[in-house]
């Protein structure tokens, strides 16, 4: 079963002669445990693809399926619940709320989904442990490094039952060695069963993926073939 699947997805902004096609006829299925990187120049549709996969945007035509649910069949409330429970986001920066500690940031999605505070903290500590930051749980974002902040954001993206991480240039503000550590962490989470879709313009980070998809002018121009050992 694919964790996320885009089938013949087109996204057009506006109508008539002024219409701009951000994505056109895109097919992409990502399996559990897979790390997929999307590369392309600015304006190629990378961020649109990520927003559609996470249910933050809806396609003009085609279907987006997350964990076997066609997002178009959901009410706004149900869609919000899917996003809280199944999808985590990591952005380039400004991921964390500065007035909350690391563990409080990671607890947030669980609390919003109705977990009691003690249960949310337990899940958050588990997630922080998985990214190797349990010892920094009570620090505030400004008290930790940029690389550590991104690791906290990854913990938040994976807290509780969440298995799908959508990452938009997660290494953009980091030096190359710290960037490697972030990809190494995402890779390790995938090997433990998570699914990651990462948008990047950096070839060295894309190379951590099982599969690299190249977008050009809203279309999939090409993709690398996943290694045989990873075919499940």
């Amino acid at each position: 079963m694919s964790v996320v699947r885009l089938a013949d997805v087109t996204r057009t902004h506006g109508e008539g002669p002024a219409a701009v096609t951000a994505l056109s006829g895109v097919n992409l299925a990502i399996e559990a445990g897979e790390l997929v990187a999307v590369m392309g120049p600015s304006g190629s549709g990378k961020s649109t693809l990520l927003n559609l996969a996470g249910g933050l945007d809806t396609p003009t035509s085609g279907t987006v399926t997350v964990e076997d649910t066609d997002l178009a069949t959901l009410t706004a409330k149900e869609l919000a619940a899917i996003r809280r429970r199944h999808v985590g986001y990591v952005f380039q920066e400004l991921n964390l709320i500065p007035s909350l500690s690391a563990v409080e940031n990671v607890m947030l999605p669980r609390e919003l989904d109705g977990d009691r505070s003690a249960r949310a903290r337990e899940l958050a500590m588990e997630a922080l442990g998985e990214v190797g930051l349990a010892h920094l749980a009570d620090r505030f974002p400004e008290e930790i490094s940029g690389g550590q902040r991104q690791r906290v954001a990854i913990a938040r993206a994976l807290v509780g039952e969440r298995r799908l991480v959508l990452a938009d240039e997660p290494t953009g503000a980091l030096d190359s060695h710290t960037g490697d550590e972030i990809l190494s962490l995402l890779r390790a989470r995938c090997d433990a069963g998570a699914t990651v879709l990462v948008v990047t313009h950096e070839p060295r980070y894309a190379a951590w993926a099982d599969r690299v998809v190249f977008l050009r002018d809203g279309e999939v121009a090409d993709a690398t073939v996943p290694p045989a050992v990873n075919v499940r």
Partner: peptide
């Protein structure tokens, strides 16, 4: 580009 990326991977 695809071939070089496969090498990089």
């Amino acid at each position: 580009r695809t071939a070089t990326m496969a090498t990089l991977q």
